[in-house]
Design a protein around this nucleic acid. Structure first.
Lengths: 251, 251
DNA sequence: TATAAACCATTACGCAACGTCAATGTCAAT
DNA sequence: ATTGACATTGACGTTGCGTAATGGTTTATA
């Protein structure tokens, strides 16, 4: 089957300008030029266009698509499987965004409150993708799957009052931690208060508390750069200090 | 909580350039400018940015986002529900694309064969993108620009009750149309009821009604495959029947 | 206290991927 | 023979930023 530029455009759902542009780039040239100067596309071009559009959909620049497709060691099947996983990832991302919008509607109705970070969950592609791929797995395997899930659920269904209480608690914890850290002794009174606040804070997220899990989390603060960064914002070394505190009182 | 430009950027997963650009456009201006000339963003700006990013995600141009958000009769909840349905539609689209890739892999393995049309299923964003971009424009030129704009605004700013009223009306219209169509006579009593419901329905979208415009729209149902498809879902030939009905009673 | 590192500002040029004329040629059908 | 749909090639315009370049401010460290 041969196609004129318009027919191909309609078939593929792109504009004729796009096809001419792709021709200009050398990305998708017609099979032949008819005697009247018209572009004529054949079967091969259809398949090629399809591949191009797939890459385009995934945000790959046209120049790069050109390189990829003209590369000698291009394996279509491998590429397709990559596409598939990329699309699945996109799907998860979209799920997050949808969840976000649903949450936002709830917030508008006054049923819940979202914190600033939550508000942008689902928008940030890289971070979440990375988070899930890089850290998500680690956390889930290392610290137990259901705990993380339940934490999420608990946050989801939190009431306004609970939410502001949590915020206050967070502030108090951070202040106390800072003060204790400045004193420098992980077994001081201030450190004990920090420990208790941290425990209380954790129980906001957890359904069941255990000292073992508490220690695990504290260790995580040091092991996982994401958490280290968070606590070290208060003061450098704070993450390690908090772990020490927890290990002192968790026995 | 106040944010500097960098912090907000990190929170939202955008670049500082983007935030400055949005400021320049007047789309998202900082809450205040600090004495040293730095931009300072507050809570309100965070929520606004979120809304902006949602619209952006759905492919709405920034200028239009600005108009929408600054519009007086902007109803956030209605907008969010629209977003939700748009995202769900996007999700379905993505499902199609994924199915396409899976099929393509099978084709490569020689398990099946795809025809040319199938090859592009899932690429063509008939539902959202085309709606807004391709036909949106056509409608604008063909049936008057401001009418469509006002229709959008009207939909945007519709209250809950109005919205559900519209839904009920839509259902009633479809049912009546179906019944009239089954009788087969475009000048029957049932047809007249259909006509009146359709007029009422149109007036939900229009500020001013004219028989000419009504006829134009009815003709469009036949001319424009998108609408034809919609009405022919009720029963094949329904679009043409509705046009006939309108032409009978619009005189 | 000096100095580097980090963060802020504005201005301005650049670019990808087309959209959109404009001017013109070709084909199919009335 | 003309009309209308469809084709061609320029060439300029647009959106949404990226990316310097240049210079002031704040914070951390030596």
């Amino acid at each position: 089957m041969e196609y004129t530029i318009n027919r191909l455009a309609k078939l593929a759902g792109v504009s004729t300008r796009t096809l001419r542009y792709y021709d200009e780039l050398g990305l998708l040239c017609p099979a032949r030029i008819s005697s009247n100067g018209y572009r004529v596309y054949g079967q091969k071009e259809i398949d090629l266009l399809k591949q191009i559009l797939l890459y385009r959909e995934l945000g790959v620049p046209l120049e790069e698509i050109k390189k990829i497709l003209s590369s000698k060691d291009f394996d279509e099947q491998v590429a397709l499987e990559k596409h598939l996983s990329a699309l699945l990832s996109k799907q998860r991302q979209l799920d997050l965004l949808i969840a976000n919008v649903e949450k936002t509607i709830k917030e508008l109705k006054g049923e819940i409150i979202m914190n600033d970070q939550e508000k942008f969950e689902g928008f940030i592609k890289k971070q979440i993708d990375d988070n899930e791929k890089k850290y998500g797995k680690e956390i889930r395997t290392k610290y137990g799957n259901d705990k993380v899930d339940r934490a999420n659920n608990k946050l989801m269904g939190m009431s306004k009052e609970q939410h502001s209480e949590l915020e206050n608690l967070t502030d108090e914890l951070n202040e106390t931690l800072k003060a204790a850290f400045e004193q420098g002794d992980p077994s001081s009174e201030m450190a004990q208060k920090t420990y208790e606040l941290h425990k209380k804070w954790l129980c906001f997220y957890w359904d069941s508390y255990s000292k073992e899990a508490h220690k695990g989390v504290a260790q995580m603060y040091v092991d996982d750069p994401r958490f280290t960064q968070y606590y070290d914002k208060i003061a450098v070394g704070c993450a390690a200090f908090l772990r020490d505190v927890v290990f002192v009182f968790c026995k």
